[in-house]
Nucleic acid binder design. Structure first.
Length: 536
RNA sequence: GGCCCAUUCGUCUAGUGGUUAGGACGCAUGGUUUUCAUCCAUGAAACAGGAGUUCGAUUCUCCUAUGGGCUGCCA
């Protein structure tokens, strides 16, 4: 841990104390097992930024021999989206981030769904009230709206429920004890709010950003416990992280502003000594312009923002997914890992085990990273080309089936060998159908440019040569073809384009001798003959 | 508006108090290839600005600018 020691700070006793406390605390943490969690909210499909957060958590845990947990943060019943939780779990499975504990494989800290831990939170809300760190507030949502609107009309900055304004609101700090009791007895709706202290300096150490200092006067009285009997994220996350013995909270930068609130809660609950370390990850930004990457950007710019395809249960709207677009999970993960992290070497292609070995939070950048769809494709291309022909032959079969083509295993392996250098996705390998059937039409540009008055006669000659090759393999074809050119004084350019045109219908592609050897002598001859007829 | 965070080629990034500021994607050019792709080589391309500290700042500090996040009984 390198701390930014600045000259001025060295003379600041508070700073020294914090440095000391922090390093001391870190030693304590190091001696216990690292436990991190990924805590998504099932309000929709998991965005790729969420996958990256999960990945970094996973890598950090595994690098340190720790546990990676999944906890579903479903405390907002109004935003429940059917299928979202399953989607999230499926997405993590697709990319291979298996949890040591989670809703599907509970450990001893369950349940792993906050909606199932409901009773838990009320106790702590009560504890906060008893200790004076929390208070009841009876203001209705409508009343709060009104106050906010009025402030807006008066051109006041955004109104907040805080140490100043709470004195003008309906809560257990302003109401008489009797009235509060009466309201509670009546079953009046209420929330529990945090009583943020006034004008204290609060410092929190972030593993990525260093010290962050805020004045508690800027912290508002956040709702901790809602009118519906559920906690808000703020309370639930602190209570659960403590209960689940989480040592490091690794989450997106959007949580940085509320981190001080969480520190206050650890303090209020008496857990500050075992408070987890924080690491706030930089955001993934949209490729053009600015702002964080959102669902709309994918639709707009033509790349997926979700790992798996998602159909909105309400609108039926379909959002594309990396899997369905043909990306390999390893490539997707590799790309994501490098969006905000790098090993400091020139190595870019990483297996998950290599990522685990090299990943540290120290090497995570601080600034947001714009997503680059081209680089993502490049990663996929690298992974595709690294696969063996046997592997590719298997992967290509479903796409072939879809087109109604089939071929032997050895044919497919050779085919994959020829096509993999010019594809980014498996599906692109089957773009060329000439491997499986005679070309239906001959590319008109090539015909216009390369089909000369004497070409037909030359091809007729070539046909005879090909017919006479007994063992029709790549080497022999190559040899005989060259011999043919030599003996007639033809250049490659005089014969090859026309030959290719008749056999494949195209003006370009892989080696002709390889193609011919693959599809066989009879097929080559028949294509030459029918092609010749077409061009006569 | 307030609070917080950030700022190296177009993009992802490395990097150091003294470097020809390195790599990758993309782009361009050349070579290999019958062609396409691959591959190889080469090139264009960056330290936001201003002060300060210093013999010397891209690097340290401050200010400004710009960008981002947050500002809900959402997470």
């Amino acid at each position: 841990m390198v701390l930014p020691l600045h000259l001025l700070n060295v003379f600041n006793p508070l700073y020294l104390k914090n440095v000391f406390l922090h390093s001391f605390k870190n030693k304590l943490i190091m001696s216990e097992k690292v436990r991190v969690r990924f805590a998504p909210s099932p309000t929709g499909p998991l965005h790729m930024g969420g996958v990256r957060t999960a990945l970094y958590n996973y890598l950090f845990a595994k690098h340190n021999g720790g546990d990676f947990l999944i906890r579903i943060e479903d405390t907002d019943q109004t935003r429940y989206v059917p299928g979202a939780e399953q989607y999230i779990l499926d997405s993590l499975k697709w990319v291979g981030l298996t949890a040591d504990e989670g809703p599907e494989n509970p450990g001893d800290c369950g349940p792993y769904r906050q909606s199932e831990r409901k009773d838990f939170y009320k106790k702590y809300a009560q504890q906060l009230i008893d200790s004076g760190w929390g208070y009841y507030a009876f203001d209705t949502p409508e009343e709060l709206d009104e106050v906010r609107n009025r402030a807006k009309e008066m051109k006041m900055p955004n109104w907040q429920y805080n140490s100043i304004t709470r004195s003008a609101m309906k809560n257990s700090l302003t109401l008489s004890e009797d009235e509060v009791k009466q309201r509670l007895a009546n079953g009046d709706p209420y929330v529990v709010r945090l009583k943020a202290p006034r004008n204290e300096e609060l410092r929190l150490h972030d593993l990525i950003r260093g010290w962050v200092v805020v004045n508690t006067s800027n912290i508002d009285d956040k709702v901790l416990f809602k009118g519906d009997g559920m906690p808000t994220y703020h309370l639930a996350n602190v209570v659960d992280d403590h209960a689940m013995r989480i040592t490091h909270v690794i989450r997106g930068e959007e949580w940085l502003p509320s981190a001080p609130t969480h520190v206050l809660l650890y303090r209020a609950l008496g857990w500050e000594d075992s408070m987890p370390s924080f690491a706030h990850l930089p955001l993934i930004l949209k490729p053009d312009g600015n702002g964080k990457l959102s669902k709309r950007d994918g639709d707009r710019l033509g790349f997926p923002v979700f790992p798996l395809e998602w159909t909105d249960p309400e609108s039926g709207e379909v959002s594309s997914g990396y899997r369905q677009k043909g990306y390999f999970p390893e490539a997707f993960i590799n790309m994501l890992a490098f969006l905000g992290w790098n090993p400091g070497t020139e190595k870019e292609l990483y297996t998950i085990d290599e990522l685990i070995a090299d990943f540290t939070l120290e090497r995570v950048g601080k600034a947001g990273a714009k997503f680059d769809a081209d680089k993502t494709k490049w990663f996929n291309q690298q992974y595709l080309r690294a696969k063996s022909n046997q592997e590719l032959a298997e992967l290509v079969k479903p796409y072939l089936d879809k087109k109604g083509y089939s071929a032997s295993q050895s044919f497919l392996e050779t085919f994959c060998g020829l096509q993999k250098e010019r594809a980014t996705f498996i599906e692109e390998m089957v773009d060329e159908s000439f491997y499986f059937e005679a070309p239906k039409e001959l590319d008109s540009d090539t015909v216009a440019k390369k089909w000369k008055p004497d070409t037909a006669a030359i091809i007729e000659q070539l046909k005879v040569i090909l017919l006479n090759i007994a063992d029709f393999n790549e080497d022999h074809i190559e040899m005989e073809f060259k011999k043919f050119l030599d003996s007639n004084g033809y250049g490659f350019g005089k014969v090859m384009p026309g030959f290719r045109l008749l056999v494949t219908g195209k003006g370009m592609g892989p080696s002709m001798s390889a193609i011919c050897a693959l599809i066989g002598k009879d097929e080559v001859i028949s294509r030459i003959e029918s092609g010749l007829k077409k061009l006569r």
